[in-house]
Design a binder for these strands. Structure first.
Length: 843
DNA sequence: TGTACGCATGGGG
DNA sequence: GCCCCATGCGTAC
């Protein structure tokens, strides 16, 4: 066990050397001299040295300043003074207790000291930085502190913490700045945990602590009375070089540098509200003032927050921890300064909610608009100390990929850009490791804005309004994102050990690599498949190959035979589908689309007639919210206008009313047959029965007539027609085909009752018809079934067209007894269904 | 009719 | 099952 460190020198216990120093110090503060502060030196001062207790800096000559900066000042001038101790690790002598070397060592938990180098090696650096402002402060304020008081300081096990290889402590900065003086040469890689502690320490030291109740008592009812609330649970990404933070006004309640509320804050505040301020933000907030920034919390704006309501919902814990306590729902006005220094007054209030409170900031719209914020962006709250001024900053969300988020500049505040800081696992962005939650959250916000506009559509999902495709795209897991990261070109990593694991560390942000598909080839070897940028062919590469973001066949040095785009792809389409399920899905979707197009092209009119039938017969059953067609926003499913009957892709033949192609003739014949059968077989009694059924349906539909009319845009609803035209469906469709250019008449001309069939059809429309179709669900299902059956039939026809060019085998025979034992039955079923539909609709 | 306010609801942690 | 909080929605202006 090492002996306790000797008492640190004070003005009364100074050694000879220190006497010199003290004498010099005192003289320097009172006598203007051009001589080097070092009394052993006769040179002329030219540079600054350590910080004196007076707040000034020892002015040294170049030589002494260099010795100081190199850490050899004490060895050169204080070598015979008392207070020398040896590093427990390397044995190096350190002049403990001397203000010059105050930052050159750290006290160890077990007693003894460690020199700076060893402290760094053993990851005790954080403790050093923790102690420095404290001790500098003590010295500067003339306080003395005993060894026990130092020993009492708990040195955390910082070996768990990450020490960046680039991290440097420059004594001069430490002294000048009076803070930890952490200089991250690559700040973006500064260990956040370290920063967190550093800032927390600094804040904890420089800001007089007030308990919540204390501050509460001083705050309530005052606009400007925002007093220092409990320190933030922590701060993120704060580089201690920002502000002095050491104030000679430090009160006597100096504690060991740890905010008391640290653990409490951590445990109480949800991680997503933890502040993750960057240097840029802090700089931006602090401006040129000497204020200390105390990051409080941040919140990603929801659609509601960013909406025009002007209410920003505050996290309860944050509001209660950092905002003045309010007892009345009306709350109190709160003056908040934005990052540009502009002041805003918000109403900080709450709503009673389920025996709890819901805190809101009202009147934030102008501010949010001023900042040009929207859902998904983040607002940050911090406090300037010692003024206690509340500062609201912001961080714009980007639409970049998570990895981009990490690596690319993000816009913050008033445009200050910072290189992406190392992400913290609890930062909102880090949610990316939950399968792209981050992007989801951001886009959710964005999409929520869209959602508000379409809220009348009444979707069940209130919070997540991301299109399915978007979701798929956003399903980028953390691992996937990591997998895409590539070292920056021409960079040699430094190896950093963290908790026993070695990590490569690059000074520059990583770049995005090209996504590849990992697989095992037929000989069991792990490979990856990569798609050429130019020819889109997939090439097989070794699994451990890291590729740049763009890759082409010409870069295929692993397989020279396939290093040209002209060489065929090794994978078959089937293999590719198997390899890349998304491709399967996409291909299926594409195939489905093609199929639909093909079917539409082939048989549109007939099925459109069915659609029309459905619309006309069941239009009232469609909810008013039924959406417009995809082709023509103002038109509704079933609309047969020239726009709506167009096949989606525009491909394939369009069938005119006078078309005499096989399909058209087939369909027309079929309907003719159906009609004849109907006329022949329907007894009057049945007709009466059906009529009564129809009347019942009509009665049910009546209340929805306006909606139906609206739904059908400017097209007459069947029911209204029925009402105005003696209720006879046959009569109501008596407008002759193409008698004039009136769209309404054109529409009517497509009615099956004239035997005119619209062959251009969109089977997918039926999906649009479904909502709310329960009232006529049976009918719709029948129609759908009939449609599907008909499609199958037609596919059969088209695929078997050579054998059955006319398709008569299905039609004339009623679907039985033909060589194909399946399709004829389909045809029969379809016809049967159609018959039932027609009979039901138009008995 | 549009907007603001304040409470209620319900999804999600 | 509780709590938080995003947002829906009724009401007042």
């Amino acid at each position: 066990m090492s002996s306790p460190p000797p008492p640190l020198p004070t003005s009364t216990t100074a050694t000879t050397a220190n006497n010199n120093y003290n004498a010099s110090c005192s003289s320097s503060s009172t006598v203007l001299s051009i001589k080097c502060f070092n009394s052993d030196c006769t040179d002329v001062k030219s540079r600054k040295g350590w910080r004196l207790r007076s707040g000034d800096f020892a002015e040294l000559c170049d030589r002494c300043a260099s010795a100081y900066e190199e850490g050899s000042f004490c060895e050169a001038f204080h070598s015979r003074a008392s207070g020398w101790r040896c590093c427990e690790s390397c044995g190096k002598r350190v002049h403990c207790g001397c203000i010059v070397s105050i930052q050159a060592f750290t006290l160890l938990d077990a007693g003894g000291i460690a020199c700076l180098a060893c402290a760094r090696k053993s990851f005790v650096l954080s403790e050093l930085q923790t102690r420095m402002p404290y001790e500098v402060d003590r010295l500067n304020t003339g306080e003395t502190f005993s060894a026990p008081s130092l020993e009492k300081r708990k040195v955390e096990d910082f070996s768990e913490k990450f020490i960046n290889g680039n991290l440097r402590i420059r004594l001069r900065d430490i002294v000048e700045n009076g803070n930890a003086g952490i200089i991250g040469e690559e700040q973006s890689q500064t260990p956040s945990s370290l920063m967190e502690d550093a800032s927390a320490q600094q804040f904890g030291i420089s800001i007089p602590y007030k308990s919540l109740s204390e501050s509460n008592s001083q705050i309530e009812g005052s606009v400007n009375a925002l007093q220092p609330a409990p320190p933030p649970p922590f701060t993120k990404h704060f580089h201690g070089s920002l502000h002095n933070g050491v104030d000679s006004s430090v009160d006597g309640h100096i504690r060991n540098g740890k905010p008391r509320t640290d653990a409490r804050g951590r445990s109480q505040l949800l991680p997503r509200y933890w502040p993750r301020f960057t240097d840029g933000e802090l700089h931006q907030i602090s401006g040129n003032s000497n204020s200390v920034i105390k990051p409080l919390f941040e919140k990603m704006l929801s659609a509601s927050d960013a909406g025009r309501i002007g209410r920003l919902v505050l996290p309860k814990k944050c509001a209660e921890a950092y905002f003045p306590p309010i007892s009345q729902p009306e709350g109190l006005p709160l003056r908040v300064q934005d990052s540009t220094g502009k002041e805003w007054i918000f109403q900080f209030r709450f709503w009673p909610n389920n025996n709890s409170r819901m805190y809101v900031l009202e009147g934030v719209t102008p501010c949010i608009q001023n900042m040009q914020l929207q859902a998904g962006d983040t607002v940050t709250f911090s406090r300037l100390e010692p003024e206690g001024k509340l500062v609201m900053g912001f961080r714009k969300a980007t639409s970049a990929t998570p990895s981009d988020q990490d690596n690319e500049t993000s816009q913050i505040g008033n445009g200050v850009s910072t290189k992406g800081d190392a992400e913290l696992d609890h930062s909102p962005w880090s949610k990316v490791d939950k399968s792209g939650y981050i992007a989801k959250e951001v886009l959710e916000g964005k999409s929520s804005i869209r959602k508000r506009k379409s809220s009348t559509l009444g979707s069940k999902s209130k919070r997540l309004r991301i299109e399915k495709e978007d979701m798929i795209e956003l399903k980028l897991t953390w691992e996937e994102a990591q997998g895409l990261l590539r070292p920056p070109p021409d960079h040699v990593p430094s190896i950093v050990a963290i908790e026993g694991f070695e990590f490569e560390e690059y000074e520059d942000a990583p770049v995005l690599g090209k996504p590849t598909i990992f697989a095992t080839d037929n000989v069991g070897q792990k490979v990856q498949w990569v798609q050429c940028e130019d020819c889109l062919k997939w090439r097989k590469l070794p699994a451990n190959t890291l590729l740049p973001s763009k890759w082409a066949c010409s870069s295929n040095t692993w397989d020279p035979e396939r290093s040209s785009c002209s060489v065929a792809q090794e994978l078959t389409a089937e293999q590719l589908e198997y390899l890349i399920p998304s491709l399967v899905a996409s291909k299926r979707s594409k195939d489905a689309r093609k199929e639909i197009d093909r079917v539409e092209a082939l048989e549109g009119e007939g099925l459109d007639t069915l659609a029309n039938l459905a619309i006309l017969g069941e239009g009232e059953a469609f909810p008013a919210s039924s959406q417009a067609t995809t082709k023509h926003p103002r038109h509704r499913p079933g609309c047969s206008c020239i726009v709506c009957i167009q096949p989606p892709s525009g491909k394939g033949p369009k069938h005119k009313q006078t078309c005499t192609c096989t399909v058209c003739q087939t369909v027309k014949r079929r309907f003719k047959t159906l009609m004849m059968k109907r006329e022949k077989k329907q007894s009057e009694k049945e007709a009466e029965t059906k009529q009564s059924e129809k009347e019942a349906v009509t009665t049910r539909k009546k209340p929805q007539e306006p909606s139906a009319e609206k739904l059908l845009d400017d097209e007459p609803s069947p029911s209204s027609n029925t009402g105005s035209e003696s209720g006879s469906p046959n009569k109501k469709k008596t407008v002759s085909e193409g008698s004039d250019g009136d769209p309404k008449r054109m529409k009517s001309s497509t009615s099956p009752f004239k035997g005119q069939i619209d062959l251009n059809i969109q089977p997918e429309r039926e999906d649009e018809l479904s909502p709310g179709s329960d009232s006529g669900g049976g009918m719709m299902r029948m129609l759908q079934d009939a449609t599907e059956t008909y499609l199958r039939m037609q596919r059969f026809l088209s695929s078997d067209g050579d054998n059955n060019p006319s398709g008569n085998h299905m039609l004339s025979s009623g679907g039985t007894g033909e060589k194909n034992s399946v399709m004829p039955r389909c045809g029969a079923a379809a016809i049967k269904m159609l018959t039932r539909i027609i009979l039901q609709l138009f008995p």
